[in-house]
């Protein structure tokens, strides 16, 4: 019996968080909250990466998490700018009311 946290517990947490993020994208209609759910899914993937990095005693996984965070920052900036542009155009953040690919 070892003292550490079992790896599959960490992976289960990652799986549950990812599924909750997917649930948010499926059931929410507010684009901002859908976007937050995507962030949650990215975080779930990061947890799995860190856990495997620790399990294999290999730092590559943590470097990849570092890059994921960088990309998440860029993604959030662009995504929120698109949401602001959409709101200026349509006065709504409801995904169901933004189905036309033109103005």
């Amino acid at each position: 019996m070892e003292a550490g946290i079992p790896l599959n517990w960490v992976l289960a947490l990652s799986a549950v968080l990812f599924s909750l993020g997917a649930l948010g994208v499926l059931i929410k209609r507010n684009i901002i909250v859908m976007f937050m759910s995507i962030e949650l899914m990215l975080n779930a993937a990061n947890i799995a990466l860190v856990a495997f990095s620790k399990a294999h005693n290999n730092l590559d996984g943590q470097v990849i998490v570092f890059f994921t965070m960088t990309l998440a920052a860029a993604e959030v900036a662009i995504g929120l700018a698109i949401i602001v542009a959409l709101f200026r155009l349509r006065r709504t953040v409801d995904a169901d009311k933004a189905t036309l690919l033109r103005w």
């Binding site: 070892e2 003292a3 550490g4 946290i5 079992p6 790896l7 599959n8 992976l11 289960a12 990652s14 799986a15 549950v16 990812f18 599924s19 909750l20 997917a22 649930l23 499926l26 620790k54 399990a55 294999h56 005693n57």
Partner: peptide
């Protein structure tokens, strides 16, 4: 998403044999 959770958690369960290497 429940289905997704079941699939992912069963994958996590399959990693049972994998242990943290060294001092966790």
């Amino acid at each position: 998403s429940g289905l997704l959770a079941v699939i992912l958690i069963s994958v996590a369960g399959a990693a049972l044999t994998l242990r943290f290497a060294g001092d966790p």
